[in-house]
Amino acid sequence: MSLTAHAEFSCPYCMAKNDLEIDEENDLNQQQIADCQICCSPIEVIVTAGYDGGFNIVAKTDSE
Rank of each mutant, 00 (worst) to 15 (best):
residue 24 E to S: 13
residue 9 F to E: 01
residue 1 M to A: 14
residue 30 Q to I: 09
residue 38 I to D: 12
residue 43 I to F: 03
residue 7 A to P: 00
residue 53 G to S: 08
residue 12 P to W: 06
residue 6 H to K: 15
residue 9 F to A: 01
residue 15 M to V: 09
residue 19 D to T: 12
residue 51 Y to Q: 14
residue 26 N to G: 09
residue 63 S to I: 03
residue 8 E to Y: 12
residue 15 M to L: 15
residue 6 H to C: 00
residue 13 Y to A: 08
residue 12 P to N: 06
residue 27 D to E: 11
residue 52 D to W: 01
residue 11 C to E: 07
residue 53 G to Q: 11
residue 32 Q to C: 03
residue 29 N to I: 04
residue 17 K to D: 06
residue 9 F to L: 06
residue 59 A to D: 00
residue 46 I to P: 00
residue 52 D to K: 12
residue 13 Y to V: 08
residue 14 C to W: 10
residue 36 C to T: 14
residue 50 G to Y: 07
residue 62 D to A: 12
residue 53 G to Y: 09
residue 51 Y to G: 13
residue 56 N to I: 15
residue 12 P to Q: 08
residue 1 M to G: 12
residue 48 T to N: 13
residue 43 I to N: 00
residue 27 D to K: 06
residue 35 D to Y: 10
residue 44 E to F: 07
residue 63 S to G: 05
residue 50 G to F: 04
residue 31 Q to L: 14
residue 24 E to V: 09
residue 57 I to T: 02
residue 62 D to C: 10
residue 50 G to N: 09
residue 60 K to G: 04
residue 39 C to Y: 05
residue 33 I to A: 01
residue 10 S to T: 01
residue 40 C to W: 12
residue 57 I to K: 02
residue 61 T to K: 15
residue 54 G to K: 02
residue 7 A to E: 14
residue 60 K to M: 11
residue 38 I to Q: 13
residue 62 D to Y: 06
residue 24 E to W: 06
residue 10 S to H: 11
residue 63 S to L: 07
residue 61 T to H: 03
residue 6 H to S: 09
residue 33 I to D: 07
residue 59 A to C: 05
residue 32 Q to F: 12
residue 31 Q to T: 10
residue 58 V to D: 12
residue 13 Y to S: 07
residue 45 V to N: 04
residue 9 F to N: 03
residue 39 C to Q: 11
residue 21 E to R: 10
residue 13 Y to W: 10
residue 32 Q to D: 11
residue 50 G to V: 07
residue 29 N to V: 05
residue 6 H to Y: 09
residue 1 M to V: 07
residue 56 N to D: 13
residue 64 E to L: 02
residue 45 V to R: 01
residue 33 I to G: 00
residue 35 D to P: 00
residue 57 I to M: 08
residue 63 S to V: 01
residue 25 E to N: 14
residue 14 C to V: 06
residue 33 I to C: 06
